[in-house]
Design a binder for these strands. Sequence first.
DNA 1: TTGTACGCGTTATCAT
DNA 2: ATGATAACGCGTACAA
Lengths: 342, 342
Amino acid sequence: MESVTIKDIAKRCNVAVSTVSRAINNHPDIKEETRRKIMQVIEENNYIPNNSAQNLKKSDSKTIGVIVKGVDNPLFAKVRSTLAESIARYGYDYYFQYIGISDNEIMEALRLAKEKRLRGIIFLGGNYNRTQEELEEIPVPFVMSTVTIDETVSKSLYSSVSVDSYKESYRMVDYLCSKGYKKIVLLAGSKGDESVGGLRLKGYRDALKANHISIDEKRICFSQDWAEDVFSMANGYRMTKKLMESGVDFDCVYAIADSIAIGACKALLENGKKIPQECGVAGFDGLDETLYYHPSITTIRQPMEKIAEETVRILFSRLHKGTKNRHRVFPCELIERESTMK
Amino acid sequence: MESVTIKDIAKRCNVAVSTVSRAINNHPDIKEETRRKIMQVIEENNYIPNNSAQNLKKSDSKTIGVIVKGVDNPLFAKVRSTLAESIARYGYDYYFQYIGISDNEIMEALRLAKEKRLRGIIFLGGNYNRTQEELEEIPVPFVMSTVTIDETVSKSLYSSVSVDSYKESYRMVDYLCSKGYKKIVLLAGSKGDESVGGLRLKGYRDALKANHISIDEKRICFSQDWAEDVFSMANGYRMTKKLMESGVDFDCVYAIADSIAIGACKALLENGKKIPQECGVAGFDGLDETLYYHPSITTIRQPMEKIAEETVRILFSRLHKGTKNRHRVFPCELIERESTMK
DNA sequence: TTGTACGCGTTATCAT
DNA sequence: ATGATAACGCGTACAA
């Protein structure tokens, strides 16, 4: 349990701790010979500097914190490397922190900012409505990536990179209408969802209106409130089963997330419905799964790589050039696949 | 950038820092009145204790570190909550650390153990062959969960919870044979894989032998060495496409991972092959996706919840009762689905 | 019940 | 080029 410290190394080398510190941190004024010897002793004794102590002492750190909300979001898993590489390209270190869906990301940010002396923070995911007051506490520049922030919060307080859920949802439904679908069911999120779920719902409503299709509230399926797994295949399956049992007439199912769409497909196919001949299906997000499903599923692809890169770019532009906070919205790509190609 | 410290709080309350510390850590000997007042000031000033300083000072911590290798592994995403709850049940804190697939988990463990004064460590994922020497450096009890360790490493050094990849793979192929499949293709991992990939391959070979089916090496497809995404749908798709182009005759495809199996299904279906009538398909792992795929895919389900619970149980039995290191192997469940039900 | 003072492991600022 | 030493923010004996 006794771990070896910088003092032990110093003693074993017959030098002062400050010399060891210099060796570790590649300081210029140290003889190459002593440096090598110290590094060798460090190696032999498996010495690892205590990062807590380092951070406690350091004033300047050159590290960016990335707070990811939702380990299980497959959309984020792929972004990790892109973010890491982009940050490294600026010569900064990064520190990823994955937190649970119900954890408070702001608290986590404050904690990390102190602990690791962060220069900037990137938030990935999490749609909770944070107040202006909370956001103001964060002492370093930060970018909300694919996070929806309440409209009442001043835009000058933070940067953001995201997609326009409303517009893209509108586009998808408009497309479905153009394909001749008249009775489009929406598999929505929870009833009170003011975030992406709500926005995509609004896009659905407005697009139908624009296409002169009257909205049948029976065709809007909300997830059960108790369902913690709203964005899951299981939920899509459940909702679609229930829909079919209810006897509501429909010719297309549009889910606000790909995972939900996959569950819906299963329920439809299981009941002998042919996709797309008897019922079209569309999702949202651009998960790989939609491409490999059979039939492949039409979706709206969020350009996650671009989003990640732009997130880092904005952060460093703010850090280095002192630019103001910016808000960038990326267009998505509507990918037409078999599930809607009658 | 100036963050508020315990001193600031003390000053604002006209008390000593130690009193503030007592208030924070729920110490008994402190007047309820002062406690409340201090907590209020803390609230008002958004004070958060610097965890680095705390850890530096503390000798005893009651926290378990969980090092997860592979954020993108859907199998692990689900385990998170189970592990967290199990650890909490013992009255311990936990600290999750997600690291990249190419990061060195041992280094990370050593770093964390120092920093957070960990009492124990759980490793989740990562199949790299670590040497005995490396493992010996870890100063606290640890459990390798679903990790394969080289046979040459002494079993007394660590605990482990896993499944028998060889046996389960054997079972699957044996089952496929019993269903009448004679020309079973294996979609394997990389050629040199000594870990799960290699074990599942061995199970395949031995099961065929036991069923008096001669092994045709052309029916064993290795992933390209350059493919970093070995366990991906894309890789399964690629391999199967290539297989069909090669003209090799087969009546069943068995993939060493569900994700690979899904890619294989897509390739087969795209080419007009009927599953399971013209070709059976089976995977390994028990991903939810296999249930929602159409047709649903036969697989070997790893009991991840049980594995997680047992992992924690073994760790604490070692921590509290001083038990020796144990190695637990859980049986999997062969789930027969549509993809092999002719 | 509360305050004072020391030390955790490290880096940075002085001297030497 | 190297050594001594003061912080960093906190918890905890010990004193009051």
